[in-house]
Design a protein around this nucleic acid. Sequence first.
DNA 1: GGTTGGCACTCTCATCTGGAGTGTGCCAAC
DNA 2: GTTGGCACACTCCAGATGAGAGTGCCAACC
Lengths: 347, 347
Amino acid sequence: MIGTSYLNDRRKAILKAVVEEYILNGQPIGSEELLRKYSLGCSSATIRAELAALEEMDYLSHPHTSAGRVPTEQGYRIYVDHLLTLSPVSFQEEEKISQVLNRQAQDLRNILAEACRLVAAISTYTSLALAPQANQQVMRHIHFVPVSAKQALVILVTSLKVIQDQFLEVSVEVSEEDLEYLSHYLSRRLLGKTPWQCLQELPVIREEQPARLVSLLNQLSTVLHNVFLYEQSERLIVEGAENLLLASDFRNSFTQRRLADALDRRFLLQDVLDRHLTSRNLQIFIGQENEVVEMHDLTLLAMPFEASRYAYGALGLLGPMRMDYAKGIRLLACVTGVLERALSQEA
Amino acid sequence: MIGTSYLNDRRKAILKAVVEEYILNGQPIGSEELLRKYSLGCSSATIRAELAALEEMDYLSHPHTSAGRVPTEQGYRIYVDHLLTLSPVSFQEEEKISQVLNRQAQDLRNILAEACRLVAAISTYTSLALAPQANQQVMRHIHFVPVSAKQALVILVTSLKVIQDQFLEVSVEVSEEDLEYLSHYLSRRLLGKTPWQCLQELPVIREEQPARLVSLLNQLSTVLHNVFLYEQSERLIVEGAENLLLASDFRNSFTQRRLADALDRRFLLQDVLDRHLTSRNLQIFIGQENEVVEMHDLTLLAMPFEASRYAYGALGLLGPMRMDYAKGIRLLACVTGVLERALSQEA
DNA sequence: GGTTGGCACTCTCATCTGGAGTGTGCCAAC
DNA sequence: GTTGGCACACTCCAGATGAGAGTGCCAACC
């Protein structure tokens, strides 16, 4: 037998075959099966020897003596790093996804939610979408609209195509002209600023305005807080959790429950995605590479996208370690591509 | 033994005990256990005789010879119709729920989504929320807002506190004054009308307006269609599906998958809830009483609520047949109460 | 030296079996 | 109508058995 720790071409071919077979069927693969399905140019005994070498190198493992081989996390790692062949995204695919996402001009949250649903549905795994941070956007538009004698609507639009609207209570003293005036005044003072800068500015503005408008400005302050609040609670969208929970790989009820709880703790996932947003490339976390304990037997694909200049979000795909990497990566590449184009069409 | 088909007080007490025990533990109940836990004033042999009679009447059944009794669907039916004692909703409960729901003045969809999440979380089952039909609301407000040279925002507010806003593409010929003018003009023509009536009216209006505004009016037409579209796709909100899917009662993977699919087919559930909205009271569908085959071993509680005059929505709770009926009914009553009050606070 | 066929070995998995446990149904006595 | 006693039926668990699958090792071969 050749040296035990060297990954020659035959071993690469065998490792690739094992990983892809396992992704396909989820069953341990034996030497005879490899011989039958792949033309490896040697006998099953030789394959066995190579399998043993690959196991020695920690790329494969053995559920038990008389079972076939299964990839280890390191095995998947080698696979995605060196063995995976990606076909480019076809124009038709991208066109189809583009159609679904652009069915109607939408604001950021709707687009992201739609993208997330799409990825979950196509992949049959769980999809995550992380919106850019609130402070990576600036106010583009601010407008008060009288709705009734007691209510007004405030509408904020930001550079990230986020629309935030909310009912405000209006005292009888506030006239329609006041609202009109305030719309223009605040536009002059706040447009081009980040939500945070706006919040800083509001107390100053409040001083300059007549007393009857103070309540309105206070409420606006709450709305701006909500832009941050949205950041905290709704920046992350999760779709298709049931796909993962019902996946045959995790029939253990304890694991299922734990995973369901983990997916509910948005902050956790949000944090993880955020921290890896610094890289501008696809990132892959296999098994224990995931910081979140509950995801230790899952793989997370995370693909950042540029929602607008310097504002990055991410689209993620969470599936079993034996997920179809090629398909998943293509899908994410395709959808983030469409997303970037849809979001960059700024007015 | 007394007559076999008559439900006397002792039998009622025993049936109630069996149902409540089973709701609590999910285990078949034997005569000895009943004797121990409930003071029924007779021996286990007598209880056995009564259990046999209740089984004869189809209120209880027998998984196998040497197992205890389990309620049948008819048993649950008798229980909810005649044996269930409901304590009234306490002020504190209602106050607490009210606080969560009214954290911020919100539009209908957010309130409903929040209510749905709340019910799912408290009940640990699956919660459904059905918004009133689009045509049960009238336009309250319509406004165009210039956002940039190429984009405008249209904002619709209806009597049901639905806010619908969407970006519109604007040609260079359309001035800010045009948008202002159109806001006023359309307000005069469309306010007080249902979305459907508005859609009817738009072609007429289009005729009367200069050519450069036609594209805008066409896009408005699409937005109005979206109000209907929202009716078709997002009128029903489902939360906590994973609670039901992971419930220990349904560990069968086939059933889980089927249920997950059924919960995804919103139209189906929407239809069911809609059809029973004519009744203005709580409705209970136990097992096969559900029209949807996938829900044949579940119970659906459906509680209608009045979102505004003549506009009814519903809040539903979907759980195992052995759900805690008392708790579920209280919860729905409480949340719909809060909802009605929150939504009736019209400006 | 690398490769090959042969073969004993090991481990899982499905099936079977027996015994403990549980709750019933029936009966005779009250 | 109610009660205690008891045989019976059935589930559930543990241990046993055998088939099947895939390996590791070895001697022979190129």
